[in-house]
Computed example of a mutant assay.
Amino acid sequence: MRKYQSQDQEAIIKMIDYIYREYGDKIYLEGADSDLLDIEANYLQDGEFWVEQASTGQIIACIAVKKSTQNSSNPLIASLKRFYLLPEYRGSGLAQQMHNTVIEWCKQNHVAQIYLWSDTRFTRAHSFYRKHGYEQKGIRDMNDGAMPYQEYYFIKNIM
Rank of each mutant, 00 (worst) to 15 (best):
Met1Asn: 09
Ser6Val: 10
Ser6Trp: 00
Gln7Ile: 11
Gln7Ala: 12
Asp8Asn: 05
Gln9Asp: 02
Gln9Ser: 14
Gln9Arg: 15
Ile12Asp: 06
Ile13Phe: 04
Lys14His: 12
Met15Gln: 07
Ile16Met: 10
Ile16Gln: 14
Asp17Val: 02
Asp17Gly: 11
Tyr20Asp: 11
Glu22Tyr: 09
Tyr23Gln: 01
Gly24Gln: 04
Asp25Lys: 06
Asp25Val: 02
Lys26Phe: 01
Ile27His: 03
Gly31Trp: 08
Asp33Phe: 01
Asp33Met: 09
Asp35Phe: 02
Leu36Asn: 08
Leu37Tyr: 00
Leu37Met: 13
Leu37Gly: 08
Ile39Glu: 08
Asn42Gly: 07
Asn42Tyr: 05
Gln45Leu: 12
Gln45Pro: 00
Asp46Ile: 00
Asp46Ala: 10
Gly47Cys: 07
Gly47Glu: 08
Gly47Gln: 06
Val51Trp: 10
Glu52Ala: 15
Glu52Leu: 11
Ala54Met: 04
Ser55Glu: 15
Thr56Glu: 09
Gly57Ala: 04
Gln58Lys: 15
Ile59Met: 08
Ile59Lys: 07
Gln70His: 12
Asn71Leu: 11
Ser72Glu: 11
Ser73His: 03
Ser73Gly: 02
Asn74Ala: 10
Asn74Tyr: 14
Leu76Gln: 13
Leu76Cys: 14
Ala78Gly: 04
Ala78His: 00
Ala78Leu: 07
Arg82Cys: 02
Tyr84Trp: 13
Leu85Asp: 12
Leu86Ile: 14
Glu88Gly: 02
Glu88Tyr: 06
Arg90His: 06
Arg90Phe: 03
Gly93Glu: 11
Gln96Lys: 14
Met98Gln: 10
His99Thr: 04
Asn100Ala: 09
Asn100Glu: 14
Thr101Pro: 00
Ile103His: 07
Glu104Ile: 04
Glu104Met: 02
Trp105Tyr: 13
Lys107Asp: 00
Gln108His: 12
Gln108Pro: 00
Ala112Asn: 10
Gln113Phe: 14
Ile114Ala: 02
Ile114Gln: 01
Ile114Cys: 09
Ile114Gly: 01
Leu116Met: 15
Leu116Thr: 15
Thr120His: 03
Thr120Gln: 07
Phe122Leu: 15
Thr123Lys: 09
Arg124Glu: 15
Arg124Gly: 12
Ala125Trp: 00
His126Val: 01
Tyr129Arg: 05
Lys131Tyr: 08
Lys131Gly: 01
His132Leu: 08
Tyr134Asp: 02
Gln136Thr: 11
Arg140Ala: 04
Asp141Cys: 03
Asp141Ile: 05
Met142Gly: 01
Met142Val: 13
Asn143Tyr: 13
Asp144Met: 03
Pro148Thr: 12
Pro148Glu: 11
Tyr149Ala: 05
Tyr149Ser: 05
Gln150Leu: 03
Glu151Thr: 10
Tyr152Met: 05
Phe154Cys: 08
Phe154Gln: 06
Ile155Met: 11
Lys156Cys: 12
